[in-house]
Write a protein that binds this DNA or RNA. Structure first.
Lengths: 344, 344
DNA sequence: TTGAAAGCGCTAACAT
DNA sequence: ATGTTAGCGCTTTCAA
């Protein structure tokens, strides 16, 4: 007998994974019943349910969602592409979005595009390989192959942080052109005669900047000097920007519109280092209304975008489509708001 | 004929997904050959390879990794658990880690624990459901069920940001106790007679704080007042902390050790708002050496931890084990470094 | 170099 | 309330 066993189990030294079948045998039911106990417990009698739960506890069974996803064609995965995970503007959006979709049982597969369309396209290809149930994209500019892949996948897509009449599927955000114009109007209403732009290399930031400058030029400003950086915003770059504006572009006084609060904070610090008074000598307007904006010296005037709302709206747009609900509006504009504090 | 077709395809209105089989038929080969063309192109003749590639382009075939993962028992997925995605300390670690593992074809499934062990445990359960090939955890404190699940999964695990003699599998980080002591030594060497702590509610931060205070008390300091916050660090809380220290704890002068650069920055701002000179009245030491630390006013003295190195080491520890390489050391200490600038 | 067959662990019909 | 059967779209043997 013993010998027989030895012969039987040969090289069988790989630990068999615990599957539904394992649990089923222990509970004295069939494998499907275990599946039901997990997915539709009401359809299983209390007695069997208890036996199955016990068997699960005893075996330490962990459901295999990759098998489940293959069989059901639903992965319960949402792919999300953001430009940069270290940029709080995007990471906090992900935080809210993630929370909202998790409540419906979805997990997030997140990747960074580094603000590159090519990278984004490659990542979309990689991500679709996991058969996500939906996709979140940042911005409305995407390569054609990217759009095609997404369209071909036939899954809900939401583009965030911007609005367009022609989204891939749905989009939720606000108009960056309008934001730039609104800040220009604010600047004029407050009697500034000179203005400058400081901007990071974000396509949307550039559109705000351009709209801002255009509106001011049209209103009679002689020129709107600017300092633009490739890549991300930082306090260091904000300091550098003011230095350049003052030292190289002869910017003496006026208001500076920054494409992010981080840059604005840098401008504030550099102004202080140079003994420039804010807002008397240089006024500063940020963008984003990050948590620290209310606590700089002086408190920062900025443009608020409700990122929590953005995340929730993006999630509910996707969840609605995943639940087969008809969504009337393809485009949701959550707007923005100028928060006046003390720097302008 | 036409009629026949109609009858044949009944209700067949669901678009058949493009599978390897689809590609195979178009290329005139069997399905396995397509699989080989994708995974081991050298084992396929150039001619067939070309036909297959053409067929893939024509059909827009997107490989199904969920099927692949089920069959191969390798998901090419790494699960990562961090306390908070909006904390740059963790998000930048993820950025580096992600880059390193992506180079080997792995994707990241990331979730936030919100500094909670219970949440972490729940997330581990959820994540294991996706059958990741490896797991990254933040810190060395985990619930017992969490450890069990991970051990049971039989996959490589790396714990980051801390070191211990008894990791679940491997760990890479540095000693927070040693960091606290080192800062205390720095404080004494520089002749400070009074010190305080400002800390966020991070278990590791608390250990640094305690080691710092203990070392100073042992060295004869009368007391080390402290302000601790539950939850994350912020500039606002840094400002509030200095206010409390001065207004409520009669902290008149000395050095303040902050558990993060963000808190330190807040202290700096509040000091300025109160007309306190830095470092003459209050000296400040941060933690993390974030990019902005060199650009505050004055530039911030802080403790540098090489997060890029941490991410890379964590990745290579995991990748080595995934490749079946024997890893001699279970624990990697990447150390830290006090960066002296102008605030202390 | 290529193919046939057998699963991976689950869910989706369809019985009973 | 429970079970049977048939896949999901791949990879892994093993043959040819």
């Amino acid at each position: 007998m013993l010998k027989n066993q030895r012969v039987t189990d040969k090289e069988d030294r790989s630990p068999r994974p615990v599957t539904m079948e394992t649990v089923a045998r222990l509970a004295g039911v069939s494998q499907v019943t275990v599946s039901r106990a997990l997915n539709e417990p009401d359809k299983v009698s209390p007695a069997t349910l208890a036996r199955i739960r016990h068997a699960i506890a005893v075996t330490g069974y962990v459901p295999n969602l990759v098998a489940g996803a293959l069989a059901s064609k639903r992965s319960k995965l949402i792919a999300a592409l953001i430009p940069s995970i270290t940029n709080i503007v995007y990471s906090s959006l992900m935080q809210h979005f993630s929370q909202a979709v998790r409540a419906s049982g979805y997990q997030l597969l997140m990747s960074e595009t580094g603000f590159s369309q090519d990278e984004e396209q490659e990542l979309v290809a990689k991500l679709l390989t996991r058969r996500p149930d939906a996709v979140l994209l940042t911005g409305i500019r995407h390569s054609d192959p990217c759009r095609h892949m997404l369209l071909g996948a036939g899954i809900p897509v939401v583009e965030v942080w911007d609005v367009t009449e022609t989204p891939i599927d749905t989009c939720v955000g606000f108009s960056h052109t309008e934001a730039g114009k609104a800040v220009a109007a604010f600047v004029r209403e407050n009697g500034y005669r000179r203005a400058a732009n400081v901007s990071a290399g974000d396509e949307r930031a550039l559109r705000r900047k351009d709209a801002f400058a255009r509106a001011l030029i049209e209103a009679g400003f002689a020129s709107v000097p600017e300092v633009c950086f490739e890549g991300g915003a930082s306090i260091e770059r904000g300091r550098l920007a003011l230095a350049r504006l003052v030292d190289e572009q002869a910017f003496r006084d006026g208001v500076i519109f920054c494409s992010s609060d981080l840059l604005a904070h840098g401008v504030l610090i550099e102004a202080q280092a140079r003994g420039l008074r804010v807002p008397e000598d240089v006024a500063v307007i940020g963008f984003g209304d990050q948590v620290f904006a209310a606590h700089t010296l002086p408190p920062l005037t900025t443009v608020r975008v409700d990122r929590a709302l953005l995340g929730e709206r993006a999630a509910s747009a996707l969840l609605a489509r995943l639940n087969g609900v008809e969504v009337p509006e393809k485009t949701i504009d959550i707007g923005f708001e100028i928060v006046r504090r003390a720097t302008a």
